[in-house]
Design a protein around this nucleic acid. Structure first.
Lengths: 193, 193
DNA sequence: TTTTACCCTTAACCTAGATTAAGAAATGAA
DNA sequence: TTCATTTCTTAATCTAGGTTAAGGGTAAAA
């Protein structure tokens, strides 16, 4: 369970006792490719930490098209925060893009940990906040940049994911069609990128 | 100070003592039309409650164009949550669209209140979460709907603002030009809306 | 190992929305 | 009240990105 909270431990080290309490509430689990952590209409009951593998979180519009709003790979946390905190039906799906291994904490257990181990409360506050900042920046960026610019910043921000994900998934994240992404990639390679 | 926390008081009534502690940390203030609560590059130092008037929160892209990402009118809270919680420079501006009257809590005072009055902690958690859900829904909606559909849902969601804001501000929120909004409005009025 | 399902690219054509320009109307400041 | 600043609308023209279709390539499942 080394990788969990690694970044945080550098700032806020956990005592042996705290680690033990946290570990007692965490469940290991395996998810097959195309397996779901969350389906639209269900309540998001777990916060998930990705040990190995990769997930996409996406919504489906009224014409039946999927739109990726977030990816999560090794070391990332994923949940529909809105549904998780309010325990109401989610509009989103979380699906494995590869064979994956995860840790999960259930909503009641996490709330119990918030009280028992105050550091956990602070950790998850930071996770939610950085999630918020990221999505807010995305709204701002989508307003003012072309698909090519958005693709370039995606490559910069997620270099490990760009080689690993099919372009259809990246296109869905960028809000364009795979055909247009293909056109962009062609244009970039002509420019020598 | 009646309107403050009104919705919350129905769920979580405050004792006389709690109200008094909260009130001691809240400052009343007046903002002129075109006055700023926050400027890009500054740290967001206050959470603001709108008693009267209206504000826009917006970012400026590299070509110098503004893009509204949120409005706040009577009874709403506004702050750049990312900047406020991490106390780092904001990329956003908050500007009064009209003469406005507000209450403000400073960051240190709010953190003090989080500890002293646990209900305040819960209240602001709810405020941040609903903010997050709103912005996430916007990302999803912007993926899959035309400008006309987005305008119609804006009208539904903010009926009080649609009569009150200049169309230039609404266009900026929808991510379109005022000229195109004008075209949409013409099209809708032909259809008898 | 074979079959099936998915993935990538290209190209021709199409549309939502941007841009530019310009005049009329409304609003705010003094 | 007057002047200055915004605002709204219309119309002509332009472009980023969507759509459709079709062929070849790759990876997963059986």
């Amino acid at each position: 369970m080394q990788s969990l909270f690694k970044e945080f431990e550098e700032i806020l080290p956990l005592s042996a006792e705290e680690s033990e309490i946290i570990e007692s509430k965490i469940r290991f689990s395996i998810v097959k490719r195309k397996g779901f952590l969350l389906k639209e209409g269900c309540v998001c009951k777990h916060y998930t930490f990705v040990i190995k593998g990769c997930f996409k979180m996406y919504g489906v519009d009224d014409r039946g098209f999927s739109h990726n709003i977030q990816f999560a790979a090794e070391g990332d946390w994923i949940a529909d925060i809105g549904s998780f905190y309010t325990q109401t039906a989610s509009k989103l799906n979380i699906e494995a893009l590869e064979y994956s291994e995860i840790y999960q904490i259930s909503q009641p257990d996490l709330y119990w940990l918030f009280v028992e181990v105050n550091k956990v409360n602070r950790m998850f506050k930071v996770i939610s906040e950085s999630n918020f900042v990221e999505i807010q920046n995305r709204v701002l960026q989508n307003f003012s940049s072309t698909a090519e610019q958005r693709y370039l910043s995606f490559l910069e921000q997620y270099p490990h994911l760009s080689n690993r994900l099919p372009n259809t998934q990246i296109a869905s994240y960028l809000g364009i069609t795979p055909e247009f992404l293909s056109k962009i990639r062609k244009g970039l390679s002509k420019k020598g990128l």
